[in-house]
Nucleic acid binder design. Structure first.
Lengths: 214, 214, 214, 214
DNA sequence: GATGAATGAGGATTCATTCAT
DNA sequence: CATGAATGAATCCTCATTCAT
């Protein structure tokens, strides 16, 4: 890889600094409620500089959404889950779920502001919704499939549960937990407890009781 | 030019018409993204008229939030659930959950836009979050308590599940279903199927499998 | 003025109430700074009612100015001075000046708000200035002429003083006293003292000192 | 960082251009009657530019008032009078008064519009009145004191005249002359004549006729 | 007549975007 | 390239005026 001139490298930095600043500001005031001048201040650049990297304010938002999608849906990020899934054979579902949840949570905490911005905008822009659906949800489902396939094949999974429903319910349950933890500032330990409890609930909802383990 | 003189009774309507229009516009573009002129157009009134009824645009938002909270958290609305809860004794939990879900869903469909506006703003305004927590969540939990208390007393409820976790998980699971149904335009019947499936999952997650206790 | 029919008389009342309210409001916030709604509230009438009596806000101002001019310049009002002037023969100028000042002051205190409104507007509207000049100043001068004519004829008035200068100086001196008394809330007695002192100054400036004064 | 090779200078200009335009427009239509768009046009800038230099329209007014007060009350400006006063020893009071009047008049002609704006607003804002009183009137009186002190000590000043009254009367007399000259567009020569006449009047009102020195 | 709700042109102010330096 | 002053369209809001009741 030939080294690019310094200025190009700096440009990249600037680009990302502005993006990061925009995420921070947008997540605090919302996209429409934020001003480019606030973003500029947060990024430590002049207002005009923003428009060198992003033609319009809207493009700045798009860049955030795209970044989010590709980092959440992209290989790099899902790989954490992928690894967990691949190594899940024979493990108790509860353990696997917990691992996945913790992996996702780590990510989400890091990305909370982006997440908030993207979700909010998704409410108002179907194309963002679609992009999320295609690139994040479907991918996530595909990644996790093996776990359920295995459970199904071994007859442990209760019958009558569609994959979609399962995924949706798990996501909903986790999402509500994460939301609560983010907004109420739950402690690490009580989050753990709540997580275990939630997983336990889901586990029993999913697994067939063959009276194997109590 | 002065126009549209109406009876005193229709003044109330005017107020509500503007409110309704605001909900509609805000839910489409977000509060900050919407303009008072758009609201006026949607309400079929002159822009100035809005400010006869709501001193500022912000007050318009507040009115929406308040309306939402009091109609969702208020007696009238919860009474649907209350009735279900009161008559739930002896019924299968699945049936009760289904009834509650359907009741809430009916309401939510009617209020979807308000809901969206309020939730979005709640992301950015802690005081709205608090108001929702105090007036909606707590109330809802209190209303549903008897169901779980009964299950607990009869030993049907699996042990180790905190009320909070149960409520959160149910809400999360339902919310994700409703969100999907709203955004993907799920059909009535497939919604029913999904709902049954979700309820089934939750039911087995909640209930102790010792067979019916007698 | 011939009396109008009763209904018209009642109209006059309303008319004057609104005018009085307008004076009060305009004098507090200035013409442009005041709103017709404030005037309406002060007058205890509906906003629309104002426009029955005065086609526009501007006309309301005109009416105030006209009222002022005709009441200050008109017979009724000047007659106080006229009487003083007519009875001034042989009196000491100081006494006459004092009487005039006191007469004007009484009037001015009653009319302070109108005065303020009219003067302020006069700054911005030459036609008001002209009207004031023609109808108030000239008249006032004409009224007071006899006093100075008499002094001149008796040789008491110092030579080299034009009537205009005399009048202007007296007016300026009195005006500054009144302004101070109005804005600083001078007490009745200290006002008296200041007035005597001012008159004394003017008197010696006007009168020829050949005579021994006792 | 933000270096301003010439922009420092130009900024000042811009700032002052807007201020000057505001003075001009406000003095023609009054503060409330003027619009920021008129000011912008008069200043030859876009409307938005005004708000880069003055946060609000009101702040623009404040800036005018402050400028006025500091330039009228400030050392630089009073120094003209101060010099006259310092060099007044032995001179005839008439000459001194004339010199002061001419000095002030020159200033006032230059500042007439500001003056008008400030005085008008002073009518409605006690704090402006106070500022004027403290920073202009008191200062002016302090500056002129020596003249009268000297006269008093030499026994030339008629007894029974308080300093306050003297000052007020002189100011009122001069003010009325200046007002007339400004509004009627008096010629230079007739102004001179009127001024001399006014001064003569005041002089004889102030000075004791001992026929000593002349 | 009197009312005051409705109007909408117009005002102050903001802010994304441009461009000369 | 970066800057930030300048821009002016767009926004929220006001208020004189009208008119159906």
């Amino acid at each position: 890889m030939a080294r690019k001139p310094k200025s190009a490298e700096e440009n990249m930095d600037r680009h990302d600094e502005i993006l990061a600043a925009a995420v921070s500001v947008f997540s605090e005031k919302g996209y429409s409620g934020a001003t480019t001048s606030q973003v500029a201040k947060a990024a430590g650049v002049a207002e005009g500089t923003i428009f060198r990297y992003f033609k319009t304010k809207k493009e700045l938002l798009s860049a955030i959404v795209m970044t989010f999608i590709s980092s959440l849906g992209g290989d790099i990020v899902l790989s954490g889950v992928e690894k967990i899934v691949m190594e899940s054979d024979g493990k108790d579902l509860r353990v696997v779920l917990k691992e996945i949840l913790k992996d996702r949570l780590r990510l989400l905490h890091r990305m909370m502001p982006v997440f908030q911005v993207v979700l909010t905008e998704a409410l108002y822009h179907p194309e963002i919704r679609n992009a999320l659906h295609e690139n994040v949800l479907k991918r996530a489902m595909a990644t996790v499939q093996p776990v359920f396939t295995r459970l199904e094949e071994s007859g442990e999974l209760r019958s009558g549960l569609s994959r979609e429903t399962i995924m949706r319910t798990i996501i909903g349950a986790f999402a509500s937990l994460i939301a609560q933890s983010v907004f109420t500032g739950m402690s690490e330990t009580s989050f753990e407890a709540e997580a275990d409890c939630t997983i336990d609930l889901l586990y029993h909802g999913l697994i067939c009781k063959k009276e194997k383990q109590s």
